[in-house]
Design a protein around this nucleic acid. Structure first.
Lengths: 235, 235
DNA sequence: CAGTGGTCTAGACCACGAA
DNA sequence: TCGTGGTCTAGACCACTGG
């Protein structure tokens, strides 16, 4: 463990244990320098990391203070479905149900965020794990942003995996909700209509340009999302 | 904008634009030092930040390389329900349905994670927004970790808000899933049994000691979770 | 206006790991 | 082996801001 790590850990422990309550002023940098017998840059690195983690707030001339508890935030890893199933040890395949190219509609709310005048590739399909439908997927890809998708052969992989390889770096927005399975989806998933499902929607951009919108629907009993680690403070 | 920020931003732009593909070696620190005419510590700070963000990987002797796209991760802010409703402008109250003190059961899986031999405060209640039930809540609080909860008057606020004030710093784990409303819950939410609901479960610890487990159930049409920001790379 | 944190410098030593 | 990144030092100047 490096020295700056040790300094950060010791201060963090005092905060998390409650010994230093929110609002408490932690020692000045020069005091910590004296205490640890190190350079100020080292202390500064530790405190900067704590501030970035939201555990402390720093104010010039005043000092550094234990931050107030913030909104709880969870980091949710949302993996590639194929990878997830494969990692679980089940055979995986993706089955295309529909595929067509059309203009953007202005009606559906999801496509409003893909504010794109050009053509879209619209697909639906099913992720299948060990011959059991695992998730229904409905996807729209902007052919303006990803012209190569028009003639791409996604093979037995999902278009999402293909996209991840060809358009690797993205920013995105997720929405998670519960829905009842509409008949089309229920059919594809081989469940009864109306059964509760977890719905994951994702809008993806690349450098500000809309790339794709996907809606994945999981039967309630086959998937849930685990949010690892929360600590009081900022994301 | 500081110099290290500028260096970081310029490299990040080249990665996100695709100019530097995954696997590409970015310039050595000493090359960037020459290019920017600054100290190595400044370049190192920029590259360290990029590595922490998961955009690059650094290997001694070999150099720094653009990282492969990673698992997609979303940072989900999971706010206090009362605050959220109040922020929306609706009147808010929490209504206690049941409340009792009992020993930990070994049967229910949620309490296995609260591996606690002591007494538990078990409560159920409803979050109400503008006279409409918004969420059903079932909570277990460890009286070993939070003895003050035994005699606490949560008033019209939810016990979660009370806990946040009295046990401010926590780590937690979330699970998000879809469920059908069981009759008890459906009753409390004034919806039909079996309708899809979003279920949010949270286990909370303080310094390794289990504090509370809560299960919140939202009717599908009244709540969804928005995950802000995803960037390829680590959380 | 004085003291804090924010940033940067020019140097150093070291551990790791690819060649 | 030896160049790379990892870390630290002792110093500096500056902007901000609280007293």
């Amino acid at each position: 463990m490096t020295l700056d790590d040790r300094i950060r850990a010791e201060i963090e422990a005092r905060i998390r244990s409650g010994e230093w309550r929110p609002g408490h002023r932690i020692p000045f940098e020069h005091e910590l320098v004296a205490h640890y017998g190190c350079a100020r840059a080292t202390v500064n690195k530790a405190l900067t990391a704590l501030a970035a983690a939201g555990l402390i707030e720093r104010r010039r001339k005043a000092g550094s203070f234990v931050a107030q508890p913030h909104v709880r935030s969870a980091v949710l890893a949302i993996p590639d479905i194929g990878q997830m199933i494969t990692a679980r040890g089940d055979p995986y395949r993706y089955e295309v149900l529909t595929r067509r190219i059309r203009k953007a509609r202005r009606i559906t709310p999801e496509e409003l965020l893909l504010r794109d005048e050009g053509a879209l590739l619209a697909m639906t399909g099913v992720h299948i794990a060990a011959d059991t439908p695992f998730a229904f997927e409905s996807r729209v890809i902007s052919l303006t942003a990803v012209p190569a998708a028009r003639d791409a052969d996604f093979g037995e992989g999902a278009p999402g995996s293909w996209l991840l390889e060809h358009v690797p770096w993205t920013d995105a927005r997720h929405r998670i909700s519960a829905v009842g399975a509409v008949p089309t989806v229920a059919d594809a998933l081989a469940i009864a209509a109306g059964l509760p499902c977890l719905q994951l929607e994702r809008w993806t951009w690349r450098q500000g340009a809309a790339v794709t919108f996907v809606r994945q629907i999981f039967p309630a009993d086959r998937y849930d999302l685990i949010g690892e680690f929360t600590s009081a403070g900022r994301p």
